Simulated scan of single mutants.
Amino acid sequence: MRRFARTLTTVALVAAVITGTAGWASGDAQEAVTGAPAGTEAWRAAGLPDPERTSPAEIARFFAGLGPVRQRELARTHPTVVGNLDGVPPALRYEANGRAAQGRFAGAEVLALDPRGRGQVALVYGDLARAERVAVIVPGSDTDTGHVQKLADMAQSLRRATGGRTAVVAWAGYTTPVGVGLDAATGRLAEAGADRLTRFVDGLAAVRPAGAAEPSVFCHSYGSVVCGLAAHGLKAKDLVVFGSPGMRAGNVAELGTTARVWAAKDPTDWIDRIPNVELAGLGHGADPTDPAFGARRIPAEDAAGHGGYFAAGTSSLRTFAAIAEGDVR
């Protein structure tokens, strides 16, 4: 009887997650892109450091020991590796990715451009090599190289709100769910994304200017699931989630992070209709804006909908900017 009741609860949860919000569409199952960058076989054959066995800090030291001519030669002969290898100097990655990008991402430097699957990209607004403050924005579902504008708009809005002082990275560096189906209701893609996010932020640390702060990481919707799973290994000073379905943790302590954890949810966000449970691998757990979770609450009463947190003039954007700038304690 108990097993039957559990089965009924699971079925109800699946139905609630997939169809509980008006306008949701069933998503197609995605295969997560993981592992070393495209072109790694030729890179390894040339006797160069194995991208899967070499840490970003070790990659940074390897490139620091090369002269400018050799660095640029590697960028020309192995562009898909150099352009996506965490720990490589940003300017060299921009150069390696420039030809493949073909001007598709106007106004941004392209720090990563992985053509596999639906495509992954990391766009930089500001001078990453010199900025004392860096913010990374991690998006939710339906984000890839062909659907990156909303994420880019968030990044540019945050940079403007900091007066241009903070370098902002729009990181679409993992395979996101498409639509809202089982991929969005489970942590499978988020687990793969968490590993990629952790290595990416390690790469930022490896090339960070002396005296620069650890980044603030802003995580939207399903991106907050990625950030929750990455939190214990993420080198960040702040972890900010908004429009979150949960972080796969019952409270801040369970995240295992030393970062300050912040949470925002506006009263018109449809994410509030999603059950904050986790059962049989479905759902993402507690609401990070619940006082019992222990996150610092960000005002968001004047934001609108699921994507309005970076709108000009909103309390959420002002607070995001203050966090990125290190102006709040």
Rank of each mutant, 00 (worst) to 15 (best):
R3T: 05
F4L: 14
F4G: 12
V11S: 01
A15E: 14
W24R: 15
A25P: 05
D28K: 07
A29P: 04
A32I: 02
V33H: 13
G35Q: 08
G35F: 06
A38M: 14
T40D: 14
D50F: 10
R53D: 14
S55N: 06
P56M: 03
E58A: 15
E58L: 04
R61H: 11
R61T: 15
F63R: 01
A64Y: 10
V69M: 14
R70E: 15
Q71V: 08
R72F: 10
P79D: 13
P79Y: 07
V81S: 10
G83K: 12
D86M: 03
D86K: 04
P90L: 08
A91W: 15
L92R: 10
R93Q: 12
E95K: 12
L111V: 02
L113I: 06
D114C: 09
G119R: 02
L123A: 01
L128W: 04
L128A: 10
A131E: 05
D142Q: 08
T143C: 05
H147N: 15
Q156T: 07
T162R: 00
T162K: 00
G163Q: 13
R165Q: 15
A170F: 11
P177D: 00
A184I: 01
G187W: 01
G187I: 00
L189T: 09
L189C: 10
A192P: 11
G193T: 11
G193L: 05
T198Q: 10
D202L: 06
P209Y: 09
S216Q: 02
H220L: 03
G223W: 01
G223K: 05
V225T: 05
C227Y: 00
A230C: 08
L234H: 03
K237H: 12
D238N: 09
L239N: 09
V240L: 10
S244T: 01
R248P: 11
N251A: 02
A259Q: 00
R260H: 12
D272M: 12
R273M: 13
G283M: 03
D290F: 04
A292S: 13
P299T: 07
D302S: 01
A304M: 11
G305P: 02
A311G: 03
A312E: 15
G313V: 04
S316W: 01
E325D: 15
